[in-house]
Structure formats: C-alpha cells, structure tokens
C-alpha cells in the first residue's frame, strides 16, 4: 500500500515535469511546473524531509512560480512549441525543420536512453554508505539546537549556508545587471480595490509573525531561516502589490543594510570568534543556540529583503526604461 503511494507520487512528478515541458501554451507550462514543485514537496514530506518540503513549496514552487507567472506578461501567450521558431517565418520552416532535426533528436533520444539505463543501474546498486545520521545525532548536543537539519545548516556546515546567503545577494546584483539599471519604481500591478488593500494591510503583520514563529521553531523542528525568509519576503511582495512600494520609499543605506546584514553579520561574528582563536563559524556550545538564532534572524531578514527586491524589480521590468522615480 505504502509502496503504491510512492509509485503514484513518483509517476505524478515525472508526468508533471514532462507535461510542463510539452504543454502547448506557455502559461500551462508555468502552472504545470508550479504543480510539479508541489508534487515534489509532497514527495519530500513522504520521504521524511519536512524542511525540504517547506523550502520546495515556498521557494522553488512558490517564489520561482510567482516570478515565472510575472514573466508570462512579457511573452506571447498563444505560442505553441511547434510554431515557436524565432519569428513569423516559422511556418514554412517547420517542414524543413522536422527533417533536419530528426537525426539529432534520434541520437539525443538514444543517448539519453542509454544514460538513463546507466543512471538507474548506478542508483539501484549504490552501496549503503550509511550517511551521517548517527554522527550528526551524536553531536547534536554540542550544536546548540535540537533540530538536526538546522544543526547541519547553521553549525556543522554553516560555511555552505553563509556562501549560499552570498549567492542570493549576488543573484540580486546579477538581476540588476541583467535588467540594466538598479532602480525601483511604483508597482505596475496595483491592487486598486480598497477593501483588498485593507486585507493586505491586515495580513502583513500576521505573515510576519508567522515567519518569526517558523524561525524560532526551526531550533527544534522543521522551519528556520529560509522558510521564515520566504514568509517575510511575501509580506514585502504583498505590500509592494498593495501600493506601498517599500523599496522606493526607504533610504538607500537602509536598503543596502537590510540586504547585507545577514551575510555581513554572519561573517563578522565568525571573524570575532576567529580573533579569539576559534575556527571560522565555530561557536562555543553554551552560546551557540542564541548566536545561531540571531544569525538566522538577520539572515532571514536579508533573504526576505532580497526576495522582495527581486520581485519588485521583476515586476517593473516591462516598464519604460527611462521613467525613473527613485534612483539608487
């Protein structure tokens, strides 16, 4: 019975992935991908990875999905895969295309089929390495937190997490570069309904508090900085859509401070303990719990700011490039 659930879930994920690539309409693609993300999130929970499940649903499906949906505005909606070929001349090209693409696709198909066989063979015959379950459990007492995933993320492998916060900040910078200028404008998709705006205003603190709870709860159970960050980021996005363009209002230094606080504090704290002779990101076990909570809170704040900023920036990308309302 339980194996049946696994099989169904696996087939569902594969089916949704396949469909999202083959769907004739772009919007279908995006929504199917969103569904694929949710299916994966279910899979994670089924596999006992609740943290991963929340992260997948919130970030991979939720946040990326929102960005993809926002991007849909740019592209012609009714284009099907067959006619997509670059421009209007594709109709007469398609017959020629099918011939010229037949052989490469055949080769690709064969190659990938072979690859799949080797991959499955390899995965099924992967020797049982045992993982690090026992070791991470044994060290949990020294890590300052009770939840093993949080211990790995912020203590055992805190260095990875620190770099990852850097990746998010860098992603934001990269998006600025890609978009041309670092400017925030009033949102394009304004919520005009006054009632809805009141609802948004009401929900903002609720979301914020729920995020804070997740952050704190991460110490002992599923949750933590990333999950909290998405909720806090969502408040920023909602405020933005509700007509309170946060980034156009707050001063530049504050914005930069919010963005860099997580990365910077994490590092400076590490440096401070290094000056005392410890290794980087090594905390004394007695204070580890508190320190990790502070680091997590600041990291979540920075990630939330970055996520909201990315959304705000995406949301204005279709606008006229010259119309500047708040420069950097």
């Amino acid at each position: 019975m339980s194996v049946l659930i696994d099989i169904v879930l696996a087939i569902l994920a594969v089916y949704l992935a396949l469909q999202s690539l083959m769907a004739p309409r772009l919007s279908q693609s995006v929504f199917l991908f969103f569904a694929f993300g949710l299916a994966l999130a279910l899979t994670w929970i089924r596999l006992g990875a609740v943290d991963v499940g929340i992260a997948e649903a919130a970030i991979a499906a939720g946040f990326l999905g929102v960005l993809l949906i926002d991007a849909l505005r740019d592209f012609s909606p009714a284009v099907s895969e067959k006619q997509e070929g670059a421009d209007g001349t594709s109709a007469d090209r398609s017959t020629k295309d099918t011939k010229s693409r037949l052989l490469p696709s055949l080769a690709l198909g064969l190659g990938l089929g072979l690859f799949l066989l080797i991959a499955v063979e390899a995965i099924w015959h992967t020797p049982k390495g045992g993982g690090l379950t026992a070791l991470s459990e044994a060290m949990l007492a020294e890590s300052g937190v009770e939840h093993p995933v949080t211990a790995v993320l912020l203590n055992y492998r805190g260095y990875d997490t620190w770099l990852e916060i850097g990746v998010i900040l860098m992603g934001l910078l990269a998006i600025f570069v890609a978009g041309g200028v670092e400017v925030y404008r009033k949102p394009r998709v304004l919520v005009r309904d006054p009632l809805l705006r009141q609802v948004i205003l009401f929900f903002t603190p609720v979301l914020f508090l729920f995020g804070a709870f997740l952050l704190y709860y991460g110490k002992s159970g599923p949750g933590g900085a990333f999950q909290a960050a998405v909720l806090w980021g969502a408040t920023g996005i909602l405020l933005h859509l509700g007509g309170w363009p946060v980034f156009a209002v707050i001063p530049r230094w504050l914005r930069q401070l919010l963005l860099t606080l997580g990365l910077g504090f994490f590092l400076l704290l590490g440096f401070a303990f290094m000056a005392g002779g410890a290794a980087l990101f090594e905390y004394p076990p007695a204070q580890a719990g508190v320190l990790i909570l502070i680091v997590e809170a600041l990291a979540a704040l920075s990630i939330a700011t970055a996520l909201a900023a990315i959304f705000a920036y995406f949301n204005q990308m279709k606008d006229e490039p010259n119309e500047i309302e708040s420069t950097t």
């Binding site: 943290d51 991963v52 093993p148 790995v152 990875d160 997490t161």
Partner: peptide, 12 residues
C-alpha cells in the same frame, strides 16, 4: 530520523 545532511544540502 532521516539523514539530515542531504536535507540541508538540498535546501541549500
């Protein structure tokens, strides 16, 4: 419980 290290790696 399941191995937390891969979970953390996947979140990252």
């Amino acid at each position: 419980f399941a191995d937390p290290v891969p979970h953390a790696m996947v979140i990252t």
